[in-house]
């Protein structure tokens, strides 16, 4: 078997010290294969963002190991693209400047930057808005711009923290399909956090269910549905069955705990 793209090896994360210490994640062990899409679900506060931020290199674990390509994560880097829940577009840059930001850091020349930026903006349907400032975009457009910005630097891992959380159902479905479409052309590893069980099943190879207090692995559910996925699959009984399993793993367990 090939080396996993991302591995958590017995990872724990505590915030604070002494009596105030809080265990956000306890003994998490998990492998994510190269080119795999996993979604992460679980009750609020179970450590989903914490786990992702450790892969991103934005926070470090208290114990255990977080590996990407077999190497310990030591900080953020453009090989791991992050799409934040709050869009995090730079409001003082135009849409194109936002997308070009990472390319500039890679020292690409101007013509190449421009071409790459417009290519990815085209991919998310924003080519006509390249010279607009983020304040003039809708929530869905901002999110698509953030996706283009992350894709443009060509990361091998995409980390997405509830990226579609603030969007209406229609835009959500569109962006899910767009994500799968892009993935099918260029198979990156995707770790995708969501609260939406439908979304979790629809886009994933595997759904990782976390439990809270302390944050830990609850269950891993394989999604044995073929790609490419479409509405037919979304409405199929097989989909419904997996969806129900995930639902039970997240909420039923939660109800028992409460």
């Amino acid at each position: 078997m090939a080396e996993p793209k991302i591995s958590f090896r017995n990872v724990s994360k505590r915030f604070g010290a002494g009596d105030d210490a809080f265990t956000a994640i306890q003994n998490l062990t998990l492998d994510i294969e190269d080119g795999e899409i996993v979604t992460v679900v679980g009750p609020s506060g179970c450590g989903k963002s914490t786990a992702m931020n450790m892969v991103a290199g934005l926070i470090s674990q208290s114990s255990g190991e977080v590996l990407v390509d077999g190497k310990p994560v030591s900080g953020p880097g453009p090989d791991r693209g992050v799409i934040f829940q709050q869009y995090a577009l730079f409001p003082w840059m135009t849409v194109r400047e936002n997308v070009e930001f990472g390319l500039k850091l890679q020292k690409l020349d101007k013509a190449e930057r421009r071409e790459r930026a417009l290519h990815y903006l085209g991919l998310v349907g924003l080519a006509d808005f390249a010279d607009f400032y983020p304040k003039t975009l809708s929530g869905g457009m901002k999110q698509r711009c953030a996706i283009a910005r992350a894709y443009a630097v060509n990361p091998t891992v995409l980390l997405m923290d509830e990226p579609f959380g603030a969007l209406d159902a229609l835009t959500r479905v569109k962006l899910q399909n767009q994500l799968l479409d892009t993935w099918s052309k260029d198979k990156r590893t995707v770790m995708f956090i969501t609260h939406d069980v439908d979304e979790a099943v629809y886009i994933a190879h595997r759904v990782i269910v976390l439990a809270a207090n302390p944050g830990r692995l609850q269950e891993i559910i394989d999604v044995d549905l073929p790609f490419p996925r479409d509405d037919e699959i979304r409405l199929s009984p097989e989909f419904a069955a997996i969806r129900n399993r995930v639902w039970r793993a997240v909420y039923h367990h939660d109800a028992q705990a409460a």
Binding site: A56, L58, G77, G81, F84, A88, L89, L105, V153
Partner: peptide, 24 residues
Amino acid sequence: TYINAARVLGANDGTIFARVVIPA
């Protein structure tokens, strides 16, 4: 979030200061 967004795109402290902290 802006600072983190810049860091994950590969920005170092100097770049973050010039292109994020100053305009923000």
